[in-house]
Measured scan of single mutants.
Amino acid sequence: NLRWTSEAKTKLKNIPFFARSQAKARIEQLARQAEQDIVTPELVEQARLEFG
């Protein structure tokens, strides 16, 4: 299971509600691909840039 830093959680809250669950799934996918067990603000930002 993935842990989220408080900064990453804050960044996730800045994503519009309607896109948040999809973004969260993508962020967690990116973390797993990078073999990380902690979601960082950088991963959230990477996903945000993908979504535009």
Rank of each mutant, 00 (worst) to 15 (best):
V39H: 00
E42I: 05
E42D: 12
K11Q: 11
L2K: 02
Q36S: 12
Q33V: 08
Q29S: 08
E28F: 02
V44C: 03
S6K: 14
N14Q: 14
K24E: 05
L12Y: 07
R48N: 06
E42N: 09
T40E: 03
S21I: 12
T5W: 01
T10K: 15
V39M: 01
T5V: 03
Q46H: 07
A31D: 00
R20P: 02
A19F: 15
A23D: 01
A19H: 13
I15E: 02
A23I: 15
T5E: 04
A31S: 03
R26G: 02
Q33T: 07
E28T: 04
G52R: 13
I15G: 02
E35N: 15
P41F: 05
F18W: 15
E7V: 06
F17S: 13
I15A: 03
E42K: 06
D37I: 11
K13T: 07
R3S: 08
T10D: 14
A19S: 10
N1M: 13
D37A: 10
A47L: 08
P41Y: 06
P41H: 07
V39I: 13
P16I: 04
P41M: 08
K13L: 14
R3N: 05
E42W: 07
F18L: 08
I15T: 03
A25K: 14
P16G: 03
L49Q: 10
E45Q: 07
L12M: 08
A31K: 00
A47K: 01
S6A: 13
F51E: 04
G52F: 15
R3I: 13
L2I: 11
A34D: 04
R32M: 09
P41E: 12
L30T: 02
E28G: 02
F17R: 14
K9Q: 10
L2Y: 04
W4L: 00
P16M: 03
A31T: 06
D37T: 14
T5Y: 02
L12Q: 01
Q36Y: 10
L49A: 10
S6V: 10
A8L: 01
Q46T: 07
K24L: 11
L2R: 02
K24S: 04
Q36A: 10
L12W: 08
S21R: 14
R3Y: 12
Q36T: 15
R20K: 03
E45L: 07
L2T: 03
I15W: 13
L43M: 13
R20H: 04
R26Y: 14
I38M: 08
T10H: 12
S21E: 14
A8I: 00
E35C: 12
W4S: 00
E50A: 08
Q46P: 01
E50G: 07
F18S: 07
R3G: 04
R20A: 03
K24Y: 07
Q22F: 12
Q46R: 12
